[in-house]
Nucleic acid binder design. Sequence first.
DNA 1: ATGGTAGCCGCGCTA
Length: 256
Amino acid sequence: MKLASWNVNSLKVRLPQLLDWLAAQQPDIVCLQETKLDDAAFPRREIETAGYHAAFCGQKTYNGVALLTREAPSELAFGNPHFTDPQKRLLAATVGGLRVVCVYVPNGQAVGSDKYAYKLEWLAALACWLAEELAANPRLAVAGDFNIAPEDRDVHDPIAWAGQILCSEAERSAFRQLLNLGLNDSFRLFEQAEKSFSWWDYRMLGFQKNQGLRIDHILLSEPLARRCVAAGISREMRKRERPSDHAPVTAELAEP
DNA sequence: ATGGTAGCCGCGCTA
């Protein structure tokens, strides 16, 4: 079973690339972030024609998440019951014996800003809810754009980024709190190339210079981590014309 | 050099 997550930065713009990539990679479950579409504008027909069920929770211009699945999803949940949030950032469903949570963690803008405080509150509430989800669903996957580079090795220039947004100690601590619930960073279950990133700024030739961060993650509960046989980043998607600023991340699970 | 680019129904904001 192949799991994937991709911040598409506008599903409208990236739909042709998404369909292309679905056909080539045949993932079973795909979490999307930053769809930037309200639900009425979601390209359901195109996704279904490609062979996927679609669950989505969107808004115009900002945010928006979606879950594409080969099998029909059940027990859909929109948002966090412990955190009232007008921003569409969270979507969960049960599919193929897995509980899958798609997250788009707030960016936080700058350390100390109001948006940063919101990010930390959002993450605390996420941990609270995931603890319950994990207790009810031992086979849990949490995938998405976490907007956190967990360690210095996930940052192209750790000195320049020290203490900055996406890398601050409070954010990293919040990420470790998620791991401490009993979740594993699937990417780190395997030997990986140095300087592996999932996001590169559009500006200043960030991708060409590999000035990136690894902020997109697939977290797996213990029973799923034991089944995980591969994890990676589809860097080639960032080389395309008119790319998202994020590359898709993937994790493959062996059948139980 | 506090810049730069991309996407949004925009007349700045968010990332």
